[in-house]
Design a binder for these strands. Structure first.
Lengths: 294, 294
DNA sequence: GTCAATTACGTTCTCCGTAAGGATG
DNA sequence: CATCCTTACGGAGAACGTAATTGAC
């Protein structure tokens, strides 16, 4: 028992026209080939589907019920293929991205604007999530890709987008405020404030030799906006990655580059290993890479 | 764009096993032929459906949505063919018959008993309907066949089952009661009672020369049971076809054959012209013919 | 006698299998 | 280097077209 979409079309054409010759034309077949095709279909079905004299062609009762089913199946087939074409041509679809809050704020607006201009019908979902949450969403397939911090992620397919420098942020009356750059050792001091231990920035910094043993009990907050306000108040200084500097653009605050070349924070674009991106996601992937390059 | 049921099976096998070699075995194909088949399907679809290295095979996101649809379609296909087989083997189905009340009472019980013994799963519907109602049901397709009285029905495909004799029914004290047979002219008399004008029996009789002009205003009832009671009461006689005699099997009643050979009532089995019977109906058709012969 | 479906037969093309090639872990 | 998918190529069978045949009105 084998039957093709063209067989179904032939069957339905004959059911509709009730005329071999005209149905054959509609299928771009010789009338003889068409007749044979119908014969094969009937053998396949095991039942006579048409009652025919040389004058009249009619569906048998069994043919009628079969025709009903075939109409449904043909419609489903068309829909399946049309859906596939739409996906392929990015006429429909969905793409979900998780990005660090800083990336979500700094890069993604432009990325999404360009993407939507090129693919207006594709639904874009953006989640601003810290590295661990982003990785978990990626693992679960809730997002197609994640932009996170961290390097050695064997779990995923990763492309490094950038290795960010860190900056000392302080008030303009701080001794280091007008320097072009400072070393991490210079920046380290009793007034150093940190983000919460759970943040990837904190964990990255904590691993640095220059900061080991320095005031583990300083002020410790969760949000960069809070940190920014504390610094502005003169309660201390902090060290943050470049992408988060927009939080610190306020009066009397200064950002001074940390010059230690070893201290770089890798921003990576991660995707699931061994899983292909959807066509919609692939386009988004390229767009993110372009943003990182430009 | 052409795709066969075997293609669908191949695609789903690969989607399931994620392994060309094993999926090929499952489809009884060489692994090479299988690979080509998948390739053709992908060309047909216009999208890569599988992500494959030599080590791993995975559905692409587009392949996943396609697989969903194909699973549904495959199930529908199987159901369609299974349903067809069931119909062909008379494992399911329905047949509807309209029959004159006399036929419904005299023949159909046996016919249906035999039919159900042979085709226990097929639903049988029997309508006891006068000729005109039966014809109308047949025209509308509400029944597959109708057993009616009347001969020249060009509208339908007809087989004459029997040409019934008529009988004079009277009480045992009637002058003709003990005759072997009588002519219609002899039977015609002032005590003749008739069925309602709408009945086919009445119309048939009314056309007979021997009865023309005889007492058009006699007693006139609708049901044979009533007529039987009137005759038994000695209120008159009547002329009825053989198949209805069971109504007159009561004490003091006699039935005498009308000998006029021209006066015969054809009982015909009618089906719609140019329309095939369902397989279930065909079997019923044969059964009715057998009953009429036996 | 004409129109229409089926059958006959030669051709074409698709599909399959064997075998070689190439990539991955 | 072993596994496994892909490509190459030749053959078998299915599908198609032309033409003759059969059947219905």
């Amino acid at each position: 028992m084998n039957i093709s979409t063209r067989d179904v079309e032939a069957f339905l054409a004959l059911a509709h026209t009730q005329h071999f010759t005209r149905a054959a034309e509609r299928c771009h077949l010789s009338q003889s080939a068409f007749s044979q095709k119908i014969g094969r279909i009937e053998v396949s079905a095991g039942v006579k589907l048409f009652e025919r004299s040389t004058r009249h062609v009619t569906l048998t009762p069994e043919g009628e019920v079969f025709a009903e089913e075939m109409r449904r199946i043909q419609a489903d087939m068309h829909q399946a293929f049309a859906g596939l074409r739409d996906l392929a041509q990015r006429r429909v679809g969905r793409v979900a991205v998780a990005a660090l809050p800083s990336v979500a704020a700094e890069w993604m607006p432009q990325v999404i604007a360009r993407y939507r201009a090129a693919n207006p019908r594709i639904k874009v979902e953006l989640f601003d999530a810290l590295a661990s949450a982003g990785m978990s969403m990626l693992r679960d397939g809730r997002v197609d890709m994640a932009i996170i911090a961290g390097e050695d992620l064997q779990e995923f397919d990763c492309r490094v987008l950038r290795r960010e420098r860190y900056f000392l942020v302080c008030r303009d009356d701080h001794p280091l405020a007008s320097r072009q750059s400072v070393s991490l050792a210079q920046a380290a001091g009793p007034d150093m404030m940190h983000l919460a231990r759970s943040s990837s920035v904190r964990q990255h910094l904590q691993a640095q030799p220059a900061l080991l043993g320095t005031h583990p009990e300083g002020l410790e907050v969760e949000h960069l906006a809070t940190l920014s306000a504390l610094v502005a108040q003169g309660l201390g200084v902090s060290v943050v990655p470049e992408l988060t500097l927009f939080h610190f653009r306020r009066e009397r605050l200064r950002a001074v580059a940390i010059r230690d070349t070893a201290l770089r924070r890798p921003i990576v674009l991660a995707r699931r290993k061994g899983r292909a991106l959807s066509i919609a996601a692939q386009a988004m992937f390229e767009e993110v890479l372009a943003q990182a390059r430009g």
